[in-house]
Design a protein around this nucleic acid. Sequence first.
DNA 1: TAAAAAAGTTAGATGTGTCTAACTTTTAAA
DNA 2: TTTAAAAGTTAGACACATCTAACTTTTTTA
Lengths: 122, 122
Amino acid sequence: MLTQTLEDYLEAIAILEKEKGKARIKDIGNYLKVKNPSVVSAINSLTENGYVQHKKYSYVTLTKKGRDVAEEIHKKHKTITKFLKDFLKIDEATAKEDACKIEHIISHKTYKKIASAVEENI
Amino acid sequence: MLTQTLEDYLEAIAILEKEKGKARIKDIGNYLKVKNPSVVSAINSLTENGYVQHKKYSYVTLTKKGRDVAEEIHKKHKTITKFLKDFLKIDEATAKEDACKIEHIISHKTYKKIASAVEENI
DNA sequence: TAAAAAAGTTAGATGTGTCTAACTTTTAAA
DNA sequence: TTTAAAAGTTAGACACATCTAACTTTTTTA
């Protein structure tokens, strides 16, 4: 099972691939506010478990498995952000920050209710 | 600054003091689902920082400082639980579980909005 | 194209929180 | 009141995530 931290790395990689075409160690570190060695250590772990591919001294790419997880988390992220913005009138920046933490810890049940609320705009 | 984990210990101690009159190492461990040595280690840290008092081989008591923090967290816990139950129709058990995690990570801004929603019953 | 800068890696340390195993103290009971 | 059980403690190990410092590779640029 992925840790919260590794989920964050996957999400960051997906975002960087989308935004910049490729995810480099440096960019991942900037995005997550950690130093290179932390990124390398996380990427090694993700590589071992088949979530990413990484050729030494080069960039990182998501595997199918990694992409699936990243997309799921990102979707959660967007849904929770929207919920916080629309229902609680939280500003964008704060909503994103909080969503980023909530997405990792929330139960499936609660997430589903939030998703319904957002979809149905209750 | 307290870690999430130590906040959980404070909250547990407050609840046990209320329910049982005193908080014993064993009970704290049962409550948090960890073994005695983990509790002892946490209590040592809380003692060093003035959140609790602990005489060897005896029970633990909150200091004023510890009680203030515990009460604040517990209040948060109750508010978030109520929000999840009332607004999202989450069942009691799930609501409590999620609240227990959310209470530690949520921003002040978002918490305030949740508290308003619960109070005003929007 | 050689030198300098940037990016990536490795080694090793630190902090936090958990555990098991072994031991000590306290409490309960025979 | 001695002994057995329960509770608490200590020592030491492990996993995770981070860091700095030193080193290697790649990229840029003069």
